[in-house]
Write a protein that binds this DNA or RNA. Structure first.
Lengths: 198, 198
DNA sequence: GCATGCCTTTAGAACCTTTTGAAAGTTCGG
DNA sequence: CCGAACTTTCAAAAGGTTCTAAAGGCATGC
């Protein structure tokens, strides 16, 4: 009779585990991802004790993890009348989740690297202009070129990224369709689809 | 007299360090990133001993790391006549580097998660259709909806991603320009740029 | 005020990843 | 074949991160 309930439980467990395994790649801790997955599936807010029980983790860990998720803006606190416990919910919209993660990763990962590369490029450019020794000048030029290419690439990428986020979920779908269509028509040459490699 | 040489050295060190610090976020080890940065800047192939010396790492570490980079396709082996050492170069094209990393991350991170989510969604859908108990049915429906949304999002994202990679570096630049232009015109409402928050 | 329930902090334990140094393996010239 | 020059592998150690359990803090209700 409760086969379906069992299936759901299985689905939940699978998602939690999957999310957790992918977490390191996303720069967040496994437990954070697991709590997030749990809250993503549970329709109603969960309290600390429920999270502890479901994931078999300690109170301290649950507390720290939930705090991180709050900091990321991926989870919100909910109060219930006549109950002193704090309850937590996850934003149900996939887009909102994505936007949050994407913006923060951009800020934490892309921007610092961009600044450093710009700085390095400036050093190379200055060295190139000031150099008297032709050998040093040549090397400085090479550094300058490579770093400038990389900087420009990141810049373009960044702009593209920003366009996405501003487009919203519907815009994203439209974009995907548009680009797919454009790509079907674009290549004026011969080899567009039959690019068979040996 | 060698101030410029010093500046270059500084630029190299800064980039190596920056690359290395960002590495964990990118799912590769710090040393791998450092070796890659080093090879990216050095115009000519480097051998194991040079890498060891520049980064102050052990031979074993250098060997393993270079192998990983070869596996990722980010670095190539080069032989020199009359020299039995192996030398290594990094691809100079920023685009090629990006394409390599992007494809592999997609394969390793996005695709497994996509499959798992699809599987979870199927479980939820089946449970929804088979459920007799209305309460279970409702819960199954919720699971189904959320998982389907997530799956669809990943699908769109994946296609978009594929479009990018196929567009190549020039295409990417064009795309960025196009989207920026489209966004400048798009909003039919009033509040597009002056979105001031309290 | 005091007791209770809940959240947060913290020091140490457990765990996992990375690095090392040395030994084994491979390839080449003589 | 032998010895030299390199590369690869592997077990042990170092290092870093995450988790737990226990103590501390803060608000609430009696």
């Amino acid at each position: 009779m409760h086969d379906q309930a069992h299936s759901l439980e299985e689905a939940k467990t699978a998602l939690v585990r999957c999310w957790g395994e992918m977490a390191p790649y996303w720069g967040i801790s496994r437990t954070m991802a697991e709590v997030h997955a749990l809250l993503f599936l549970c329709p109603e807010p969960l309290c600390t004790d429920q999270i502890m029980a479901e994931l078999a983790i300690s109170r301290g860990n649950a507390s720290m993890t939930v705090r991180s998720l709050l900091d990321w803006g991926l989870v919100h606190r909910v109060h219930r009348k006549g109950d002193r416990k704090d309850y937590y919910v996850c934003d149900a919209s996939v887009w909102t989740i994505f936007e949050n993660i994407a913006r923060q990763r951009k800020r934490r990962e892309v921007e610092p690297i961009f600044d450093t590369i710009s700085h390095c490029r400036d050093l190379a450019r200055d060295a190139e202009q000031a150099a008297e020794d032709p050998e040093i000048r040549e090397m400085a030029h090479r550094y300058h070129t490579r770093l400038e290419e990389m900087r420009e690439f990141l810049q373009v990428f960044s702009h593209l990224f920003e366009s996405f986020l501003q487009a919203g979920p519907t815009g994203l779908r439209e974009m995907a369709a548009m680009l797919a269509a454009a790509q079907g028509l674009q290549p004026p040459g011969g080899d567009q689809s039959t690019t068979s490699s040996p």
